[in-house]
C-alpha cells in the first residue's frame, strides 16, 4: 500500500499542533512511518508545498489576505483537509484581537504599523470547506489519533462531540464547578482533551471550543450566580472562541 501523502500547513499560530503531531503525541514515530511527509516545515526541509496531498492538516488562524489565498490553493490540491487546533478550528488565541479596535491592538505589539497587513481573524472554515476538525490547544490525542487512523483506513472519522464533563466523569474527578464553585467551561465545551484541566483542578478554558449543543446563556447565568462579572464571563467565552462573537452565536446554539 502506498503511504498517504501528508502536508502540514501553518498560518497564524504557535506551530504547537505540528509539534504535537510529529513530536509530542503518543505515536510520533508511527505517524512519520505511516505517512509520506510531503510538506511539513517542522520536520522536513524544503518539501513540496504545491502537493498534491492525500491529507492536508491546517493549523492557525487566517489573519492576512495572502493566507486565505494560500489556503484555497491547499484545498484544491488536497483530497482531504482537516483543520487542526483551536486556532484553525475556532479562531483561537490569535482571534482575540477581534475583541478590540484593530489599530489599538496592533499598536500594543508593533512600533511601526505600516508594514502590518492583517485582516479580521477567522478560522479556516470561513474560507474553505473542511473534512473534519481536530480540536483543542494542543489538539487532543483521541481526535488526532482518530483522524490519522481514519485516513489510513479510508473511513469517516468519528470525533467526540459531547461535553468535557462526560470525560471528566469517566475519570471520576470531583466536579470543581459544582463542588467548589470554580467557573469551569466544561459543560459547554466539546470533549476530546480527556478533561485535562479539571483533572488538575483547573477550570476548563474551553480550548476545544463550544460544543454544538452548548447552552452558553445558561452557563453564563450560572457564572453570574458565582459572582463573576459580565466582563469576566465574556472573557471566558471568548478566550478561544472570539470569532463566535460570544452570545450572538451562543444564543443561536441555545436551541440546536
Amino acid at each position: 500500500m502506498t503511504r498517504p501523502r501528508l502536508g502540514f500547513f501553518k498560518f497564524s499560530c504557535c506551530a504547537g499542533c505540528e509539534f504535537q503531531t510529529f513530536y509530542f503525541q503518543k505515536h510520533p514515530a508511527e505517524t512519520l512511518a505511516a505517512f509520506e511527509i510531503v510538506f511539513a516545515k517542522m520536520v522536513l526541509r524544503g518539501g513540496a508545498p504545491e502537493g498534491p496531498f492525500d491529507l492536508a492538516l491546517v493549523e492557525g488562524t487566517i489573519t492576512e489576505a495572502w493566507q486565505a489565498d494560500e489556503l484555497k490553493k491547499i484545498r484544491k490540491s488536497s483530497a482531504l483537509l482537516f483543520a487542526i487546533g483551536a486556532c484553525a478550528v475556532n479562531g483561537g488565541i490569535p482571534a482575540l484581537k477581534a475583541l478590540a479596535p484593530e489599530l489599538e491592538v496592533e499598536g500594543k505589539v508593533y512600533k511601526n504599523l505600516s508594514p502590518i497587513h492583517s485582516i479580521r481573524p477567522h478560522p479556516v472554515d470561513a474560507y474553505i470547506q473542511v473534512d473534519g476538525y481536530i480540536r483543542g490547544c494542543p489538539p487532543g490525542e483521541r481526535d488526532l489519533h482518530e483522524a490519522l487512523t481514519s485516513v489510513l483506513a479510508q473511513k469517516k472519522p468519528g470525533f467526540l462531540r459531547c461535553a468535557v464533563c462526560v470525560e471528566c466523569k469517566l475519570k471520576g474527578n470531583i466536579c470543581i464547578l459544582t463542588a467548589y464553585g470554580m467557573p469551569c467551561m466544561g459543560p459547554v465545551t466539546n470533549a476530546g482533551c480527556d478533561a485535562l484541566c479539571p483533572t488538575c483542578k483547573r477550570p476548563c478554558y474551553s480550548c476545544f471550543g463550544l460544543m454544538k449543543q452548548a447552552n452558553a446563556p445558561a452557563l453564563a447565568k450560572k457564572f453570574r450566580s458565582l459572582g463573576l462579572s459580565e466582563s469576566d464571563i465574556r472573557r471566558k467565552f471568548t478566550l478561544f472562541d472570539a470569532d463566535a462573537a460570544l452570545f450572538s452565536k451562543a444564543d443561536k446554539l441555545n436551541e440546536d
Binding site: 505515536h27 508511527e30 505517524t31 512511518a33 505511516a34 489519533h145 482518530e146 490519522l148 487512523t149 481514519s150 489510513l152 483506513a153 468519528g158 459531547c162 461535553a163 464533563c165 462526560v166 466523569k169 469517566l170 466536579c175 459544582t178 466544561g186 459543560p187 459547554v188 460544543m211 449543543q213 452548548a214 447552552n215 445558561a218 452557563l219 447565568k221
Partner: peptide
C-alpha cells in the same frame, strides 16, 4: 437551565448507556 452537559446521567447509578468504540492502532 439545562446545559446538555450530561453530568446527571454520568453520576446516575442506574444509567447503563454506553458507546462502543473502535480504536485502530497506527500501524493498522
Amino acid at each position: 437551565r439545562c446545559l446538555s452537559c450530561a453530568n446527571c446521567v454520568m453520576v446516575c447509578p442506574t444509567c447503563f448507556c454506553h458507546d462502543v468504540v473502535d480504536e485502530l492502532s497506527m500501524d493498522m
